[in-house]
Amino acid sequence: MDKVKLVVFDLDGTLVDTMGSFANHAATLMERHYGLLHETGYSQYIKTSGLPFRQQLEVLFPRNHKNAYVAHQFEEWKVENLDDASFRPEVEDIFDGLRDLGLLIAISSNNLQQNVDHVSQQFPSQIDTVLGFRDDKFHKGEPHFQWLETHHNVDRSEMIFVGDSLNDCRIAMDCEVPFLAFPTTFSIEQFLGVDPNVDHVDPITGIVAWIEESQDQIRTTELPMVDSSFSPWIGRNTSA
């Protein structure tokens, strides 16, 4: 990883503690429309989190004719409950700390673009870029990272992607973006099962110190090598 210039955050489950309510409502819909036990639907939603809900349904119920309708019901419910979604209380201090380091801040989410825009209005001056799901050609992953590279003139090696789901970790690996796990939805052991070299922060407030430490390590490795064969005493007349 090069020196970090841009920190890319997942939204739901990472900056906003919405995973429990999302999983509960998704499970209710799956029980109602597919006959799945509520507890099974809850766990399956968590397991496939990080994908747009329509894609989650396609994973769980491939080519089912109900998927589009159920996904629409879920997205409507999220819009109706947007005002209940708020950033974790520690996020403001995290953003301030990253700003003090001179870093750019972006959000990359598979929640609908208008939903991500609405929630992100809580920090309009601190978030540089807000990217949500627009269509099948613009979503979290390759399309978002390409956009960030182009518009911020930042290489992927200069980004760090922070997320709470195993799919976030897989996306980062597929897109060759350094990843930092926030193990709330999944344990660090589960993340290590996806990427044995994954690093993590817990609590999320540790991200500022983690980046500072990584930058210090980079600066140390960039220092010029000292020629150990050189001695300041060679050639001096020490006989006097």
Rank of each mutant, 00 (worst) to 15 (best):
M1G: 11
K3P: 10
V4L: 10
V4W: 07
D12C: 02
G13N: 04
T14G: 03
V16A: 09
V16C: 08
M19H: 02
A23P: 08
H25L: 11
A26E: 10
T28D: 03
M30K: 11
H33R: 11
Y34H: 14
Y34I: 03
Y34A: 12
T40I: 13
I46S: 03
K47T: 11
S49H: 02
G50T: 11
G50W: 05
F53M: 14
P62V: 09
P62H: 10
P62E: 07
K66H: 13
V70L: 07
V70E: 05
F74I: 09
E75S: 11
K78F: 06
K78A: 11
L82F: 00
D84R: 04
A85Q: 03
A85C: 03
F87W: 02
P89H: 09
E90Y: 04
V91T: 08
D96M: 06
L98S: 14
R99H: 13
L101K: 04
L104D: 02
I105F: 08
I105V: 15
N110P: 06
L112A: 08
Q114P: 06
N115P: 00
V119A: 06
Q121H: 02
Q121S: 01
Q122W: 08
Q122S: 15
P124N: 08
Q126V: 01
D128E: 12
T129W: 10
G132L: 02
D135F: 00
D135I: 00
D135R: 00
D135L: 00
D136G: 06
K137T: 05
G141F: 07
P143N: 06
H144L: 14
W147S: 15
W147L: 15
W147R: 15
L148K: 05
T150F: 00
H151Y: 09
V154F: 00
I160S: 09
I160P: 05
V162Q: 05
D168P: 03
C169V: 14
C169I: 15
C169Q: 14
C169K: 13
R170A: 11
I171P: 07
A172T: 09
A172K: 06
D174F: 02
C175W: 10
C175A: 14
E176F: 15
E176V: 15
P178H: 08
L180Y: 05
A181P: 07
P183F: 01
P183C: 03
T185M: 01
G193R: 00
D195L: 10
D195E: 13
P203A: 07
I204F: 04
T205Q: 13
A209C: 07
W210C: 12
E212T: 12
E213A: 14
Q215H: 12
Q215I: 09
I218H: 03
R219K: 11
R219P: 01
R219Q: 12
T221P: 06
P224T: 10
P232F: 02
P232A: 06
S239K: 15
